[in-house]
């Protein structure tokens, strides 16, 4: 009987610890969100979105140029990275499904997926910033594109593999060439899934800092030129945290709130999109 009691006791202890672990695991999310709202909301105003980043000593200023830079580079990054990723994913799932190279490409892609983003920054620095001799928005956007590619490759391949083969066979039986089967049947069936992947890619790069530090660098003024350094929200936060200037620190918190809400919003949107697909 005592054996039975001790088994029950150890079960109870272990399960309580698991419950506790879950509680502690979730608490972080709310702690972080709480401190972001607590510190970020009081100074969130229209001027945050329309005024430029201030120099030290000012009492006003906003993040307009940084927000614009982030949106611009994210847009170009996804614009360059997503098509390449979708096409590569298409090869892995369609043309090259049984090719010998496919497992290797998938393996390498999975490694790139988790490669440290600062390495991507060093890579783009070496191949673009050094030959151009100066930092530029273009270099930043390309660094982000390199990060997007593996994300999109992975989701595109996964989603295309979920498309039932009978659909492809039916289309092929009507005499459609492979490209048409992919475009009109496979892509259509996997559309939501591929879009979800691209959305996750946007969420992944919108908050990236490390690859931008020495590619896009930073800029205190409004710049829409692809060939000049450009500010972005994460790098602005990065440089404002370490200043003793209270106003800049405030802006860093506000910027952090904006970035986090945007990224979490994208993540949630991607989830809703993929959930709506499962139901239909």
């Amino acid at each position: 009987m005592s054996l039975y009691a001790s088994r029950r006791r150890s079960n109870f202890v272990a399960m309580t610890l698991c419950l506790l672990a879950t509680f502690i695991g979730i608490v972080w999310l709310f702690l972080i969100l709480f401190s972001l709202f607590w510190n970020g909301v009081p100074h969130l105003s229209l001027s945050t979105f329309v005024e430029m980043t201030p120099p030290p000593g000012e009492t006003s200023g906003g993040l307009a140029n940084a927000i614009f830079g982030t949106v611009l580079m994210t847009f170009i990054g996804v614009g360059v990275g997503a098509p390449i990723g979708v096409l590569a994913g298409t090869y892995l799932a369609e043309y090259g499904r049984y090719s010998k190279a496919t497992p290797t490409i998938r393996f390498i892609n999975d490694i790139l997926l988790s490669a440290p983003s600062i390495i991507i920054g060093l890579f783009i620095y070496g191949v673009i910033v050094v030959p151009m001799k100066h930092f530029s928005a273009l270099a930043g956007a390309l660094a982000l594109a390199v990060i997007v590619i593996p994300v999109v490759v992975r989701t595109t391949e996964d989603m295309l593999l979920l498309v039932p083969n009978t659909l492809r066979e039916a289309a092929s039986a009507m005499g459609l060439p492979r490209a048409h089967v992919v475009w009109h049947v496979a892509y259509r069936a996997a559309r939501t899934g591929i879009l979800t992947g691209i959305l996750l890619g946007v969420a992944r790069i919108a908050g990236e800092t490390a690859p931008l530090l020495f590619t896009a660098f930073s800029n205190n003024f409004w710049s829409a030129s692809l060939l000049k350094p450009i500010a972005s929200l994460p790098t602005t936060i990065n440089s404002f945290i370490n200043t003793p200037d209270a106003n800049m620190k405030q802006l860093a918190w506000t910027g952090a709130l904006i970035v986090t809400l945007a990224v979490l919003g994208l993540n949630i949107a991607a989830r809703i999109l993929s959930a709506s697909k499962k139901q239909s």
């Binding site: 972080i32 990236e208 800092t209 952090a256 970035v259 986090t260 990224v263 994208l266 993540n267």
Partner: peptide
């Protein structure tokens, strides 16, 4: 728990 993974590392 998965949203924790979405928060940018600078945050």
């Amino acid at each position: 728990v998965e949203l924790l993974a979405g928060i940018p590392s600078i945050i």
